[in-house]
Structures are given as structure tokens and as C-alpha cells.
Design a protein around this nucleic acid. Structure first.
Lengths: 229, 229
DNA sequence: CCGCCCTGCCGCAATGCCGCCGCAATGCTG
DNA sequence: CAGCATTGCGGCGGCATTGCGGCAGGGCGG
């Protein structure tokens, strides 16, 4: 008996082709054409994961996600048609576990599904970087090296990305410079402490270009930095 | 026979994954989906520690904590979804021994559990820095370098934090200036005694900005200071 | 090979923190 | 009550830490 997945899309082509692939992979698929029917169907037949199109008639993916998340932590993967939809989905701070932009390869979808399922089943045991970090208006997707603040993309370098990720992953937790250094370069790398300051400087500056009120990277005098949600 | 732990969360995913991990670590786990059943279950099967989700149907974690604490000193660790919930939990002066914000790594949870258990078993003997100090309206969290009085944050410097922590950790106990000096700087540091007075002065002033009636740092003429609960 | 970007570090200025001083207030002792 | 010790408190100067602009070396792609 395979894992049960809900597939919601108003495009019949997608519905049939994707469901076929998923069934070939051993999943059981419940197909729905719109959010409303999906919501009703999910009440009757619980699934372990949902794949939702964002743009749908009657009830779109985001609304559906909210309803779903109202009373469960069902893993959800979004399908998005354009990049701005993607930003929208992320920018609104929706709680999707992952998303895929159309057009996508079936193989990619399978991989993402398995990844999300694995994370869900192992709970937080999975120490590998979660695919998406979401803290308030900040969104980070390591897989795509994508970072957005209030829905707008912020272009970060690798080092900046890793440092911000380390901070945002545990908002409120103080990180000293060594810990941030470890996050950015791995352990056993020695650099001047002040280097972290430089990266923090650039991080703040880049985000402030879009939102001059950004002040979520907090300095703790004599200790380090922390991310405030 | 491992230590028995109660795990209460309405999210089945968390429940299964966390209980698995804990069992792997040699704990025995009692799972409950909501506060009410948990409370009944705890009456029948006492545990040595409880891990509670804050948001739950029927009876949430805070209500449950109050009931639990009504007739025992069972150590409790909170799971919180958002930071505002966290603040809520702390601000309300709930008596949790620790809390973890989701998402969290299982490893972190294990570590916290062990720390809380160690502290609980060794009582006041445990000199290792506890994760959370809570004395009446005062709350201190070294990991987050967070200090709050009556739910409002008080920004302290490292030295101030350490001194207040040393006092609040053992309310009622007199600490002379040498002891406070050790707590703040480690041993083998010599400074003028009056320096401690300055820090006490600044501590009192900072807290009094928010609450002019604050007088819990008591002076013992010719001896030192103590924290009054 | 050239040019761009990333990055680590430096120097300066601004800020924060801290130890101590001096004086006034308070407590203790005889 | 007198006298001494101790503490509260404002303040100050020095030191440490941090923000920020900038720069030079290195990597990488064109």
C-alpha cells in the first residue's frame, strides 16, 4: 500500500500526466480540480502529502493551504506557473514545505515529494538543511539559493546566505562570531572575527536597499548577533 | 528501564517522529494528542518530564502546565511554533523549565531534556548554567541573552546579566561581592569591590525604568546582596 | 588576458561598557 | 547622639566593541 498523495490542479493535462507518474512510482493519488472539492475530499480521505497548484478557480492553492494548515501539519508542495507567483507564495509567508515552478520534470517532482516525505516522517531529525527557511518576512531557499524579504528577492553571496541562514534558522538565539564562522565556512577555519562584522554589514545593507526599516539582525554587544523575528 | 517522558502534541507527525527519537535514546514515551487526555493519563502513569506543545485543542499547553504544577513539580519543556507564543509563555510567567521553538532538531530536544532532567535530579546542587532562570516576575534565558521583568524585556549587558543571574539563581541566598565577581568574571580576577555596587546600581535602574516598584535586589549591610523572590 | 565580483581585512569614527571617584545618604556601634 | 563604615548614585575617562567606507588580492567567467 503506497503513500497517499493529493493532487490539486485545474489543468486536466497536468492532473492526468502527473497522477500517472506518481502511481508508477507507487503512490496512491487523489485528484481534485479545485480547492473546494479538494478540501472536502481531504476531510474524507486523509493523505500524507498534498501537491497544489497556486492558481485555481474557486479556491486557490494559498487559501487551501491555510485551511489545511488550520488543523494539521500536512506537508504541502506548491506548483507555480511563473516566478512572480512563486514570490507571491513565498512572500505571503505561506507555510508550504516546497514548491516547483512549471514547467517541471516529473523526476524533479518525485524527488521533491520524497524529500518532503522523508523530512516529515523523520520529523526534525533531518539535520540536512531544510529546503525552506521562513521567518516572518524573510524567506530563504538554499536549493535555489533564493532569498526574499517581503516578497522581493535579495541577491546574496554564498557566505552572506549561509550566515543569514544560520541566524534565521534559530531566531532569537544568540550566535557568536565563531558559530557564524562555522556556519559559513565549516569548522577549523580561522579568520578574523571582524570578518563576520563585514558580512553582517553587507547583509543589512542589501536588505535595507529594499526596506530601509529592516533591523532584524540584532547586535549583542560583546556577544554576537541574533535574528529577531 | 529508561526515564519516562510524556509527549503532548496535536500534530501526529511530531508525535511519532519525536517519540521514535526519544525511544531510540532510551526514554519511555507516553504520547497524548491533547491536554485533557494527557492530564488524565499523567494521573495514571506518572512521568519524570513532560514535553508540551503550547497550542493544542481542548486544553492548551499553558493550561495543562498549570494543572500539572498544581500538585507536583514535574519538569516541563514547551514546544512553541512562533516567537510571539514564546514571549507569551515567558511573559505570562509560566513555570516551564525550558522551551524550544519549532522547527527544532531532535538533537537539540534531547540535549534540553537531559539538561532539565539533570537539573531536576540534582536539585539546587547543579552548578551548570540552567537554560532558564525564573523567579517570580523575573525571567532569564542565557541562550537568547534575554531578560524580562513582568513580561517586558530588559536589556542587560553581559556583566549585568551574569550578576543578576547569579543572584536570581538562588533567591534568598546572600552573595558577597567576591562571589558575584566570580560569577561575572570568573575567578582570579581582582577588581575593586565597589565595582559590583555599580553594576547593582545599573541593574536596579534598568529594571526600575519599567517598574519603579522593583526592589528585589536587597542590600545586606556589610555582607552583600541577595535576590528576594 | 581582462574585468568583475567576492572577500578578508584595515582604519577611523561612533557608540557602548565599565571601573572608579567623590559626595551624600543611610546604617551600625558605642 | 557622635563617629565611623557602608552603600547609593551621578558622572567621568578610558577601553573595547562595532559600523562603515574602502582597498587589495584572488577566483572565476568571458
Amino acid at each position: 500500500m503506497g503513500t497517499r498523495i493529493a493532487l490539486v490542479d485545474d489543468d486536466q493535462n497536468i492532473l492526468t500526466s502527473v497522477s500517472l507518474t506518481l502511481e508508477n512510482e507507487g503512490f496512491e493519488v487523489d485528484c481534485y480540480h479545485d480547492g473546494e472539492t479538494a478540501l472536502r475530499g481531504l476531510g474524507r480521505r486523509p493523505v500524507e502529502l498534498a501537491v497544489l497548484d497556486i492558481k485555481m478557480p474557486r479556491m486557490d492553492g494559498m487559501e487551501l493551504l491555510q485551511k489545511i494548515r488550520g488543523d494539521s501539519s500536512l506537508p504541502v508542495i506548491f506548483l507555480t506557473s511563473k516566478d512572480d507567483e512563486l514570490d507571491e507564495a513565498l512572500g505571503l509567508g505561506m507555510g508550504a514545505d516546497d514548491y516547483i515552478t512549471k514547467p517541471f520534470s516529473q523526476r524533479l517532482l518525485i524527488a521533491r515529494i520524497r524529500a518532503v516525505l522523508r523530512r516529515a516522517s523523520q520529523g526534525e531529525m533531518d539535520m540536512s538543511a531544510p529546503n525552506i527557511v521562513r521567518q516572518g518576512e524573510l524567506l530563504m531557499d538554499p536549493d535555489r539559493h533564493l532569498c526574499s524579504w517581503k516578497g522581493e528577492e535579495v541577491k546574496l553571496t554564498v557566505t552572506e546566505f549561509l550566515i543569514l541562514q544560520a541566524l534565521a534558522l534559530r531566531p532569537g538565539m544568540v550566535k557568536n562570531r565563531d558559530q557564524l564562522m562555522d556556519a559559513a565556512y565549516g569548522e577549523s577555519v580561522f579568520l578574523d572575527d571582524r570578518t563576520i562584522d563585514s558580512h553582517i554589514k553587507r547583509l543589512r545593507r542589501k536588505i535595507r536597499v529594499q526596506d530601509s526599516t529592516f533591523d532584524n539582525i540584532e547586535t549583542l554587544y560583546g556577544i554576537g548577533y541574533k535574528y529577531r523575528a
